[in-house]
Design a protein around this nucleic acid. Structure first.
Lengths: 126, 126
DNA sequence: TATTTATTGACAATGAGTTCTTATTGAGAT
DNA sequence: ATCTCAATAAGAACTCATTGTCAATAAATA
């Protein structure tokens, strides 16, 4: 099951890099389709997953929204407005060793974490 | 727009309490439907959202998985197995003042947070 | 060049959740 | 106790993001 270099795969990787941080699959698709109209959505999804599996890009799963794909930019957290439901980036240092605080891992092998803050966004707070 | 006490609403609340922590909407629905076969999925979703809006239960949004609903047990964090997708409780002190670390709140009024660890559970790690 | 098989495009299917329409019902007013 | 009517329910249809299926295509290699 070795990987092949396809035009489509290369385009997906290039486009994620080009779009910088947290592009959605749809955004990547829309960008590619301008230059390569025959590409299918499925191919974009498949390659985004494959590229994140082999560590070329990072998948950021977002509750209540489309997954985001980052080229290797800084790790960050998110906040959701409890009124309008929108998601925002939070300016806070990434806590790399948060897993150390877990008392009893119970055999779980931790590989990372997400933090989702909740609150009311400026626009809803009037 | 005042709330009414309906049989269905009561059932949803009772069931979330009964199932203890982090039940999904689907689990709540499956439990209720045994005793009350006419309830609709929509009603369960609507009431879970309503009950969490008024603070009777707590919604835990899980990236890459269905939302969970906790009865008001002690605040705690969760871990999601990236292989089987199941959710586990994590034994770690609640960080009450985590919001203090946010550099620029940008007018956002924070009211809380969730942390979801990722990793591989003991059963999947064999 | 021929062969093998990973990958693609097209699109159906899924999962989670929301929204629509119509009918019903809880609870305050009479 | 009955009336009234907005809140709510049932059930279907829908959205959105994503995955699965499969015949056709095209990289890698032999």
């Amino acid at each position: 099951m070795n990987k092949r270099n396809t035009v489509q795969r290369t385009l997906v990787l290039e486009t994620v890099k080009e779009l910088r941080c947290h592009a959605t699959a749809e955004e990547v698709y829309n960008m590619i389709v301008k230059k390569y109209p025959d590409i299918s959505r499925g191919t974009v999804y498949r390659n985004l997953n494959l590229l994140s599996d082999i560590g070329e890009i990072r998948k950021v799963e977002v509750p209540g929204g489309a997954d985001r794909y980052d080229h290797l930019c800084h790790r960050h957290y998110h906040a959701r407005c409890i009124k309008c439901g929108r998601l925002f980036d939070v300016e806070m240092d990434f806590i790399a060793d948060l897993e150390k605080n877990i008392r009893d891992t119970q055999g779980f092998e931790f590989t990372g974490h997400d933090i989702i803050f909740k609150g009311i966004c400026p626009e809803c707070n009037t």
